[in-house]
Nucleic acid binder design. Structure first.
Lengths: 151, 151
DNA sequence: ATTATTCCTACTATTATGGTAGGTTTTGTA
DNA sequence: TACAAAACCTACCATAATAGTAGGAATAAT
């Protein structure tokens, strides 16, 4: 039997990093995919796909053509990590029956374990919704500043 | 692009339910796979595979042959949900780089998002390690008792 | 001896993962 | 107006995980 794992996928992780990258390197200009890809060490083509999801959700805005690129649509403090992950991961619910307004599982009235998944769900969302992209980019800027001092 | 989800797999969910079932229906006798399967509405063959993992870990004990079966190896209060899930799901870490003692990710010194995954990891483990199989089986017994009164 | 049971291994269909690839459209600039 | 740089769009692919099914061997009670 193979060992399974409950993990955030690379797409979700990359999406958060892209948002933080745009926040850290925000100059007002549009950042190009190849610049972000280089800084973040993510394949340009894969990054393109992920940022397009962020774009369609209105989290970033883009201009096409030469000198085009992407930038954050709003201030970095208005995005939580949870928003980004829910967008790119689909859902953070640890079990399917907690999605939607009504629990459609037939066993849900007598389910021995539902309480566990509910508490897990609350705990997960509390963490990811309490951290904003601004929190992460501020820390990153501080780290980079500290690094500069060492040169 | 397909929507992905970070979920506890059926194996982990079933494993917890099996342990709770053994606790709730504990008579001192060995419970048979077909009995558990019927009560829990899980395929016998699939349940067999899952309980064998629990058996190899020493969480349940078995006797073979006619009148054989399974029972909890220790008191239900000595098992946390986390123990069962980590055994059957492999790991509950939301990202691979948090597994093991040393973070082997090359980017880990400058990772913008590591703190998020660390906090998520703590939150997840706090929940699953604070709930024991006895907690769940006690509640289930109370629920069943309440149901009996309605008859 | 028979039967009931665990135990073991192989197999399978479907979906998710983590991308790669190539072309189309748009737009700034020479 | 031509060119180049960029986003945009769609298809494709290899590998692994998921959620089981299936069949038989070993063991033990009756």
């Amino acid at each position: 039997m193979v060992i399974i794992e409950m993990k955030i996928s690379s797409r979700g992780r990359y999406a958060v990093r892209i948002m933080v990258d745009l926040a850290v390197n925000n100059t007002g200009e549009y950042a190009k995919v190849n610049q972000i890809a280089k800084r973040q060490d993510i394949s340009e083509k894969y990054l393109e796909q992920i940022i397009s999801v962020l774009n369609k959700a209105g989290y970033v805005k883009s201009t096409r053509g030469a000198q085009g690129g992407y930038k954050l649509a709003r201030d970095a403090s208005s995005y939580t990590v949870g928003m980004i992950l829910r967008l790119t991961e689909g859902s953070l619910c640890p079990v399917a029956c907690l999605e939607g307004d009504v629990n459609e599982c037939e066993r849900c009235d007598t389910c021995e374990t539902l309480e566990v998944w509910k508490r897990l769900n609350v705990a997960i969302n509390q963490v990811v919704d309490s951290i904003t992209i601004a929190d992460l980019s501020d820390k990153q800027r501080a780290r980079q500043g500290a690094m500069d001092c060492l040169i």
